[in-house]
Design a protein around this nucleic acid. Structure first.
Lengths: 128, 128
DNA sequence: CGAAAAATTGACTTTTACGTAAAAGAAAGT
DNA sequence: ACTTTCTTTTACGTAAAAGTCAATTTTTCG
């Protein structure tokens, strides 16, 4: 386990710019330590970045990603808060399931296209 | 089977604005007929809109959605084009599978959160 | 130490995907 | 016929998510 990552190490690993990581910091999604002015990223920050980018790939907005991250931060002590959190978890789950269904549907259509292509290829080989 | 849909019928059905549908037309994603100036949407247009919105939910850009739609338009005749298309189908499939994996991972983390919440709830009930 | 490479801040710009408003032509109900 | 409701075009506006540029530090390494 490494102690710290520099910002450029992480930009290279994840294929994002420094501007992007600083933007995420401005947005409060990550809070790397500082030595003087320089940012020091720990592996927990690195992991958070992974989650942020995962959310991004799924088309979530920064606000939505923030919600998800807040959820990960662990359950609060108070009863009302707990119930609210579980409700939010349920909502996110529904969103994700919808997306998964969208993916399955799209994959199915791509399968059809693929078959049509193969059929057309076969025709061509026979020499239409 | 209905013959035509008006623009507002579709906006209501899909929960989008007229501006959005016109925007998609400007972008060449749909091409409704015209009677005079008024747009007439057929069920094929309606179906296309469904696909567009599905892509949108998945976080695809308009350009990417256009690619997918172009793919659906059916296999071209020429061999080179066919091979190109199959390559693009394969690429999209990979993108979608990545997204699906992202979803599974996120769902798994939500499961953990849920469990933690339930555990905390149990503690509260016993009276910590 | 001293130069080169890396990091920081701040400001301005860009792109995407629409929102909004204005002005005017068409449709439909009474 | 008249009013209300739709619809259209044109044009400008905007929020989100960075990109880009410039001017400074700060670090690193020979």
């Amino acid at each position: 386990m490494r102690k710290y990552y520099t910002i450029t190490e992480l930009t290279r690993e994840f294929g994002v710019s420094t501007r992007t990581l600083r933007f995420y910091e401005d947005e409060g999604l990550i809070q790397p330590e500082r030595r003087g002015r320089t940012r020091l990223f720990k592996s927990s920050d690195r992991h958070l970045i992974k989650e942020i980018l995962r959310g991004r790939r799924l088309g979530f907005t920064i606000a939505e990603i923030r919600e998800i991250i807040d959820i990960y931060k662990g359950p609060p002590g108070e009863l009302g808060q707990l119930e609210l959190m579980m409700k939010r978890v349920a909502e996110k789950r529904e969103q994700l399931k919808q997306k998964r269904k969208d993916i399955e549907d799209t994959l199915a259509e791509l399968d059809n296209v693929d078959e049509a292509c193969l059929a057309r290829l076969a025709e061509l080989r026979v020499g239409t």
